[in-house]
């Protein structure tokens, strides 16, 4: 088993330790309901940001429609979960939502990903709006009033499981030949094509994978917060996710994770200053962007910081 390296075992140990400690703190009540919400927000935002980073940071396709895919997952999860109130229904809802989001991602990706830069941004923005309006007008989604009373199956166990799975799978993808093909599109599309890379195929692939995980995040969201309505997944939500990606560093997975945690903690503590909360939040973003425009991590990962330069970069 080549996967059982010292580094991977270390990561596994750290994940298990984090899970156990947080689970312990929740059961003894040190982490109360209020902070539990922060933790749920962090996990869902990590999934959203890492998956958007694959599209925007690594493949270089500027998307403003990530919340659209999230809403597909959220509604599929909610509708299925309301019909089948069991853990099985919850998991089925997650996977149905993720697959539906992937399918929509592929369908929308094929025509729009021919566009570049700002044109693509506008097209994806429009796509997310269309998805929102569809949910606003369907009977099964209960229109503008939204769905309520969604049973809560999302707990720390599932949040932790899906967050870790998302980060690991996307990380594995990026560090494979397929991931390098995606990164080459970001670097130079013409050169990538003349090196034998079908750029449209890999853009759509990145877009579809991003949509899959956004769908998972959406289903986790609806099952945690009991209640969803279309305007939760509007333009502002897409921007929120993009902010995490840009702040963490386009092309850095660990950067997205750090930024998701930082922003969630910040939002939680700023709730004490209701009136000026958004001003402080916005000011902080401006200041960080002025002093570190490449984001917290740039395109580096945390593991790069510990690596000595002379050491050979191995796979993984």
């Amino acid at each position: 088993m080549k996967a059982l390296t010292k580094k991977n075992l270390l990561i596994l140990g750290a994940i298990l330790l984090t899970f156990t400690v947080v689970q312990g703190l929740i059961s003894v009540g040190i982490i109360n309901k209020f902070y539990e919400i922060t933790i749920a927000m962090i996990c869902i935002n990590i999934i959203l940001a890492v998956s958007l980073n694959l599209v925007t940071g690594f493949t270089g396709q500027f998307s403003l429609g990530h919340a659209g895919f999230m809403s597909i997952g959220a509604y599929f999860g909610a509708v299925i979960n309301l019909q089948m109130e069991s853990t099985g229904g919850f998991l089925l809802g997650i996977f149905a939502g993720a697959l539906a989001a992937t399918l929509v991602g592929i369908l929308i990706g094929i025509p729009t990903l021919r566009l570049k830069g700002d044109y693509l941004a506008i097209a994806t923005l429009g796509m997310a709006e269309i998805i929102r309006v569809v949910f606003l007008n369907l009977d099964i989604t209960n229109g503008a009033a939204g769905l309520s009373g969604i049973p809560r199956y999302t707990n720390w166990l599932w949040l932790c499981f899906f967050t870790v799975a998302t980060v690991l799978l996307i990380n594995n993808f990026i560090k494979s030949s397929y991931g390098r093909a995606c990164i080459s599109i970001r670097e130079d599309e013409i050169a990538a094509e003349s090196m034998g890379i079908n750029t449209t195929k890999y853009k759509v692939m990145a877009f579809a994978i991003g949509a899959f995980f956004a769908g998972i995040a959406g289903a986790l969201h609806s099952s945690y917060f009991y209640f969803i309505r279309p305007d939760i997944f509007g333009f502002l939500k897409s921007i929120d996710i993009l902010i995490i990606v840009v702040l963490g560093g386009m092309g850095s997975i660990t950067g997205s994770i750090l930024a998701a945690i930082l922003l969630a903690v910040l939002t939680t503590y700023l709730q004490a200053f209701t009136a000026v909360r958004m001003i402080i939040y916005a000011l902080l973003l401006v200041v960080i962007m002025i002093f570190r425009p490449q984001g917290i991590m740039g395109t580096k990962e945390i593991s790069d910081l510990f690596k000595s330069k002379k050491k050979d970069e191995r796979i993984g």
Partner: peptide, 29 residues
Amino acid sequence: LFKDLTVLDNVRIAMHQNIQYKLPSAFFR
């Protein structure tokens, strides 16, 4: 060239078209 990528990655990207392993192998190693 892919300027911000390593020398090794520049060459490895050109080898992508002959890669045999499929997506699941990439995801699950």
